[in-house]
Design a protein around this nucleic acid. Structure first.
Lengths: 249, 249
DNA sequence: CACACAAGTTGACGTGGATCATGGAAAAGC
DNA sequence: GCTTTTCCATGATCCACGTCAACTTGTGTG
């Protein structure tokens, strides 16, 4: 525990990054990794005008649920979210975790309804993009359309990697891959690539990776014993990224 | 075997559907489920002009491989394809099977390179859409852009379902889900929903579902013994769709 | 701060499906 | 045609990970 106080200040906490609800895209700290990248000033203002910036959503708050009518796309502004889909018998699968600058609900565009359920993992906020309006302004903004295609394509690619993970990897490989994927995404956002908070529960992680909670728990312990990581509650520090990379397969 | 000759004429064989290489979109039998749907005549002609229609690709032919520079999207015109991605150690995952009217390589848009490898499962042909040109003409054709978004979103949704399958379902549920998904796609294309050819090998199926070949083989036998299906080589007939649906979970 | 309840850890044990092994059937090459 | 190779089926065995159970640690609430 004394160790914890040592380490904590370094750890990223995405919920701690306060965003003024009224901050426009051009002034947003996420600008460089968000949708508006590459738009000219006029277009940016127009995009800005259709965006609805949310209040804070508390941990556990449901952004939308599967079967609700599809109205808007969402971009995480602060905090983090998970999405899940359910089988008929209630089993569900965590299909993704979403961090600032990332889109939620892209899989709903082709339908009248959301395809999944999105929940905040911590205090979080989003930018809401009413899809009707996006279609409308998109007609005059080819650059925006390209951006959207790119975003969708990127999520597609990462979903395919997850298929490889779910279908072919062992438990160790799964967890190592997961940790490094988080690491990379934090780094892209200007945070430490080695020290961060896991905003999701062990059981969310287990579910996402197709494992049992107990297995994840044991693996964290083994990784720690092996000097790969250092965990204190939800804070994790990657001690040996090279070894983790070897483990990914 | 005598039974086989009885049944065979009914079975769909996508490779058998001959397409004149020069047939334009408006005259194509896939029109109603393909990209151009909803375009006006002018736009259709313009889209038509950038499409390069391929020769026949033989079974096993590689359309593109991962790491090759991304140049074009492809739409299956006849036959079928599989896509795979590989782990560093050579293990690979069949990420999808593609039938007439379906897009291949949507996950490559955001990168310079293809993210996966695409192989023909049988004698097949494709329409090639050079992406540069698509971007170009897309600027004046919002309807085309929407179509593209919709297509991407649809694949995203089906990938999420596959995650649920890979992460949470038992072997029986996996296979039942797979068979019904094929059934649905054949039906959408105007073919029998119950009698069709499996153009992919057992091992492709196993790989795609995160199972061993032996397991798939055993399951086919068990399904047949249980009166759920009737198989002769690569031809399958779904005898009890209702029971299969119950099995999906 | 104490109480209740959810989340996480760890051990013992069981099992679904992988792996290994063998033989037959179909397809591909010559 | 014959040979070779790949594909498929089925039985015997094994093991990675799930399940069950008991305990500890965190967390939110009045």
């Amino acid at each position: 525990m004394t160790q914890a106080t040592n380490v904590t200040p370094l750890f990223n906490d995405l919920a701690k990054i306060e965003h003024d609800r009224n901050v426009a895209c051009h002034a947003c700290s996420l600008y460089s990794m968000c949708l508006p990248l590459g738009l000219n000033n006029n277009d940016l203002v127009r995009l800005d005008s259709i965006i609805e910036r949310s209040q804070n959503h508390k941990r556990g708050h449901t952004l939308f649920t599967s079967k609700q009518p599809f109205k808007s796309l969402f971009v995480v502004r602060s905090g983090s979210f998970k999405t899940t889909i359910s089988a008929t018998d209630g089993r569900d699968q965590v299909t993704g975790f979403y961090f600032p600058g990332e889109f939620i609900a892209l899989d709903a565009i082709h339908q009248q309804n959301y395809q999944s359920t999105a929940k905040a993992l911590e205090s979080s906020s989003v930018c809401e993009l009413p899809f009707q309006n996006m279609e409308e302004i998109g007609k005059d903004m080819p650059q925006l359309q390209i951006q959207m295609l790119t975003r969708l394509s990127k999520e597609l690619a990462s979903d395919k990697s997850l298929m490889l993970l779910l279908g072919k990897k062992t438990a160790d490989e799964k967890l190592a891959t997961f940790l490094l994927s988080l690491s990379k995404r934090f780094q892209e956002r200007g945070f430490s690539a080695t020290d961060f908070q896991l905003s999701m529960s062990r059981s969310d992680i287990a579910n996402h990776l197709g494992l049992a909670v107990e297995t994840v728990s044991r693996l964290f312990s083994r990784f720690q014993d092996g000097g790969l990581i250092l965990m204190v509650g939800k804070s994790i520090s990657l001690q040996n990224k090279q070894k983790l990379e070897q483990l990914c397969g």
